[in-house]
Design a protein around this nucleic acid. Sequence first.
DNA 1: GTATTAAATTGGTAGTACCAATTTTATGGT
DNA 2: ACCATAAAATTGGTACTACCAATTTAATAC
Lengths: 236, 236
Amino acid sequence: MEESATNKKSYVKVIEYIKKQIREGELKAGSRLPAERELSEILGVSRNSVREAIRTLDIMGVISSHQGAGNYISGNFENNLVESMTMMFLLNQIDYQQISQLRRGLELQALILAIDNITDAEIEQIKKINAQLEHETEEINVILDKQLHYNIALASRNTLIFSILQALSELIDQFISDLRRDILMTEDSRLILNEAHDGMVKSLIARDKELAYLAINKHFGIVDVKLREKERKTMK
Amino acid sequence: MEESATNKKSYVKVIEYIKKQIREGELKAGSRLPAERELSEILGVSRNSVREAIRTLDIMGVISSHQGAGNYISGNFENNLVESMTMMFLLNQIDYQQISQLRRGLELQALILAIDNITDAEIEQIKKINAQLEHETEEINVILDKQLHYNIALASRNTLIFSILQALSELIDQFISDLRRDILMTEDSRLILNEAHDGMVKSLIARDKELAYLAINKHFGIVDVKLREKERKTMK
DNA sequence: GTATTAAATTGGTAGTACCAATTTTATGGT
DNA sequence: ACCATAAAATTGGTACTACCAATTTAATAC
C-alpha cells in the first residue's frame, strides 16, 4: 500500500519537496526557492498550499520571506524554539521551575563541552566579563550575566545546545524577566552567584569538569532557593 | 510610534489573536477555535491568512485540525521540536555528535530530577524493564532501551525535558537508527551499557545523584567511543 | 426512542485578481 | 562608456470566490 504522493495533504507535499531538495543539496542555506507561482506549478498544487507550507517554514526559521525578492533558505532556528516554548508556557504546560531545571542541565553540559573546546582568547574574554560583573556592587548586571552564559554556550561548539539556551533566555526575557531580576537582586544571592560564576570560569581555566559541576550546582542552587521563596510569597 | 495592529502582516495578527485568547483563558487545551471563515471575519483578514496562521500552529503542535470538525487547541509539541531539529539536521547545522551531547546533558538532568520525584511503583517498572534488557544476550533491544530512558524521563516530571528527549529519540530513529544499532550491537558496548543502566536504576533506588552522574558518564562514554570508531571507519 | 437520511457546517484545495516591495530592464543624459 | 532615472517585470502579501471532502447536526421514517 504505497501511496507516496497521493492522499497527502498538499502543504505536506510542499514541505517534503523542500526537505528533499535540501537533502539532495539542491537547496542549502542562502539558496533562493522557486517563486511561489512556480512551485505551485511544479508540484501541481495551488499557490495557497505552497504559501501555507512556506509560512510554516518561515515561522520555523527555515525560510525567510522577502516581499518582491523571494523566499530564501535561512538557518535561524532559535525563533522557532522560542515560539514553541512560548506556546507551551502560555498553555501552562511548562513553568519557570521546569525552564530552570532544563537550563541547569544544559548550562552544565555546555560548560563541560566548553572545557574541551574553548580557546585561550575566549577564556580571556569570559574572564573580562566576569571581572566586570563582580564590580557591580548594586545588583547583578543582567546584560553582563547573559553575556557570560552566552559566551560559554558558544564555546561548547554545540549549535543545538546553544540554540536551546538562547531560546530559554528569550523566553525568560519575555515572560519572567521581573522574576529573574528579583531573584538576582538580593545581596546574598549576588555573592553566591559571583562565587558560582568564579567557579565556572576557574573550571574553564583549569579544564576541571568536577569544578564545573560544583559551580553549576551552586549557581542554580541559589536560583532555585530564591524561586521557592518567591513562590511562597505568591502563595500567601 | 505605536502602530499596534496596522502594518503587521495578517497571519501575524491571527497568531497574536490566538495567543491572546490563550493568555486570557478564552482558549485552553481542548478548546475549539472559531471556524476559519468566522476568524476571518472577526479579524478582518482573508481566510488565506487565517489558514496560514493555523497551518503554522498546526505544524507547531499547538493546534490540531480536523476536516469537517474544526480546529482545536492541542498540546503536543514534540512534533514541532522534531520538525525543527530535522531541518537543522538536514541543513547540516547539527550532527549526531551534537545530538548525543545534548542527550547526555538531558538524560543526566532527567535522572537527577527523577531521583527526587519518582514513585516506588515507577521504580519497580523500571527495574522490570532493566531486568528484561539484561536477559537479551544477542544484542541490545532497542525498544526496551528506549522504554527505560522514556520512563526515567517521565519520572523527571519535567514536560520540557521530556519533550526534547522524545524529539531527539525520534530524530535518531529517522536519520541514524542504523548508526545507533551499530553502536549498540557489539559485545563490549552491550556489557558496559548494561552496567550503565544498572547504575542508573541503582541511583534511583538509592536516591544517589553522584551515582547517577557516574552512570550517565559510563552510558554516554561508551556511546561516544563507538561513535568515534564509526567516524574513523567512515573517514577511511 | 432509534436508526437512517438529508442538510448544514467546516476544513482542504484551486483559481483569479490585485496590491506592495523589490529587482531587473530600458531609457536618457553627460 | 558610464551613471542616474524611470519604466517594466518579478515576486511575496492579501482578498475573494468557488467547490470538494469529512464531519457534525438536524430532519425524517420506522
